[in-house]
């Protein structure tokens, strides 16, 4: 079913919208949730929450791109679950990503302003636009979709070590870009 038809069903408050969402985007949302949370049952719970939030948000919201909108809701929901549960459970997916992202934090010696959410996203967009397509796709697959290093390495046909090195260089490049602009996280 096309996205506009699913959105139309949601606007009509038809419960079949949720089953259609699950058919079309269930795997997509589950993959994002599993990549972040690692624990299958928690990922399943996360996806159910996403459907609930979708039901409550559309209407009034009318996403232009349903897949991206759902991806963002899934990411945010999974992050909320991690925040709530991480003292009791270890979600290795997001923990590893957060550890890696520490490399991108600008040194406080060189920075002037603390950058906030939207501005930070804009800075990221500028940096991403400067990258080659291959590098950009790799960064987004790892840090937006949360895909595992070994899975990506397998797809790219290179060793885990080489891919990790490539990601490290990208993180260093992001750090340098943020520092150059004088941003503080």
């Amino acid at each position: 079913m096309d996205d506009p038809e699913i959105v139309k069903l949601l606007f009509e408050r038809s419960e079949s919208a949720i089953s259609e969402l699950d058919v079309k985007y269930g795997t997509y949302c589950r993959n994002i949730a599993v990549n972040i949370l690692t624990v299958e049952s928690d990922a399943e719970e996360c996806v159910n929450d996403v459907y609930f939030k979708t039901w409550n948000s559309i209407p009034p919201q009318k996403p232009v791109k349903l897949s991206t909108w759902l991806g963002r809701v899934t990411r945010n929901t999974a992050i909320d679950m991690w925040r709530k549960n991480h003292r009791q459970k270890r979600y290795s997916g997001i923990e590893e990503i957060l550890d890696e992202l520490e490399d991108c934090i600008p040194s406080s010696d060189n920075v002037e302003n603390e950058i906030e959410g939207k501005e930070l996203a804009e800075a990221l967009n500028s940096w991403l636009a400067f990258l080659t397509r291959g590098d950009r796709v790799l960064f987004v697959r790892r840090y937006w979709y949360g895909e595992k290093v070994n899975k990506l390495a397998g797809e790219y046909g290179i060793s885990d070590k080489k891919l990790a090195k490539k990601l490290y260089r990208l993180r260093q490049s992001l750090k340098a870009a943020l520092e150059k602009e004088g941003y503080l996280l």
Binding site: R72, R75, N76, I79, I94, I97, L98, D99, L101, E102, C104, I105, G117, K118, L120, A121, L124, N125, L128, V140, Y143, W144, L185
Partner: peptide, 11 residues
């Protein structure tokens, strides 16, 4: 890094 991770959501 969590702040950065959250910002990545909104790229």
């Amino acid at each position: 890094s969590e702040k950065l991770y959250n910002a990545i959501t909104d790229i």
